[in-house]
Amino acid sequence: MDTKALRQKILDLAIRGKLVPQDPNDEPASVLLERIKAEKERLIKEGKIKRSKKAAKTSDTPHYGNVPFEVPSGWVWCELKELCNKFSTGPFGSMVHKSDYIDNSDYPLINPANIIDGKIDVTKAVRISADKAKELERYILEEYDILLARRGDLSKCAIVINEAIGAYCGTGSFFLHLNGMDARFFSVVYGSTYLQKILKSECVGATMDNLNQGVLENILMPYPPLSEQQRIVAEIEKWFTLIDTLEADSTNLQNLIASTKSKVLDLAIHGKLVPQDPNDEPAIELLKCINPKAEITCDNGH
């Protein structure tokens, strides 16, 4: 069974509204989106967040017409920047040098290499000095921020939780914070074939793929009601747990098969796989016919 393809199929069904049934009692995503836009405008006027450089009034019009695929009633399409309260590139390489790294400090710097299987591994992160940490305060990661690899493997995506809260975004990453979209649902969309195809076609670099913030901000996102996002995430977690079990069972089965083959061969060369027939010509006699001068040492002529 191709479990990788199965996982991908589940993600693709999820972002098309085909994984869980819709609930007509859910608040339509369009209503929530209007509230998000109003709240965002308020925060911009208060100077708490900045308006996206490319955020003209395009977000004031519904995203109908030339959409990537049909979504259920109650869903809408919106650009990612409409949902972002925070979207930032990590510090430039010139801002962090090897001399800033200190073993066992309290300030981990998270790079794409620390994003493993959708989780952030803080234990292997490089660490920076207290002075450098103060200089990089604007890059502190908060709970439920989303961390993305900015170069190389652009499928890397992780949610900031547990030990990663309070760490610092590294030079090879983006981090963003969403309003009105469950961070886990964003991860579902980000890992889907739909979005990954866009990144692979639009974010091509000379030596490695590089994620372009402008491309990402303007990607159309399928946007379900918030309660449905949470139902989708719960359903995916259920299926992925089952797939994990299948993969573990498959690994155990393969190990058992390999062990059994080795045992069978071991029994065979020790004469313990099949019973001996006393009517068989002893091997010692056959060997003498093949090479009369052979020196034979054995305690069993057969």
Rank of each mutant, 00 (worst) to 15 (best):
Y139A: 00
F186M: 08
V122S: 02
P91V: 15
L147Y: 03
R184D: 11
N111Q: 13
T123G: 04
E142W: 08
I128R: 06
M95A: 14
F240W: 04
K57W: 04
I44D: 06
K132F: 10
Y144L: 07
W77T: 06
K288G: 06
T193R: 01
K57C: 08
A294Q: 05
Y190M: 01
L147W: 03
G74R: 13
Y101W: 13
V188W: 00
T3A: 07
A258Y: 05
D153F: 09
G166F: 06
E135N: 04
P108S: 03
P292R: 08
R42V: 12
R16Q: 13
C84M: 15
I198Q: 10
K54V: 05
N85W: 02
D277M: 14
G90P: 03
D121H: 02
T171A: 13
G47H: 06
S59V: 12
Y64A: 14
F87Y: 13
F186I: 09
L286P: 10
I15D: 02
A234D: 08
P72T: 14
L273R: 08
C203P: 03
E295K: 11
A113G: 11
Y194G: 12
A158T: 02
C78K: 03
D117V: 04
I161Q: 12
E27K: 10
V20D: 03
L286T: 14
E46K: 08
E27M: 09
A183Y: 04
D2T: 07
G271K: 02
P275M: 00
P24V: 11
C78A: 15
N114E: 01
E39F: 04
R138E: 15
A38V: 15
F175P: 05
Q276D: 10
T245C: 08
I219F: 01
C298V: 15
V160P: 06
L178I: 11
R151F: 07
L253H: 09
L211T: 00
V215H: 00
K81N: 11
F87V: 05
I198R: 03
T241G: 14
D117S: 07
C203W: 13
A5D: 09
V204T: 13
S30M: 02
N111Y: 07
E237D: 15
R7L: 10
F69Y: 08
A149H: 06
M208Q: 06
F174N: 06
S201W: 14
V31Y: 06
V264C: 07
R127G: 09
F174V: 06
A206N: 09
I219V: 15
N111L: 14
P275T: 01
K238Q: 09
K54E: 14
I296D: 04
R42Y: 11
L287Q: 10
S187M: 14
L199M: 12
E143Y: 12
I36S: 11
E142R: 10
M208P: 02
I219A: 10
G205T: 10
Q8M: 07
N279V: 14
I165G: 07
G17N: 07
F175G: 13
A258T: 09
Q229W: 02
K132P: 02
W77A: 03
A164G: 11
I232M: 07
D106P: 00
M181Q: 04
G74V: 13
P278S: 13
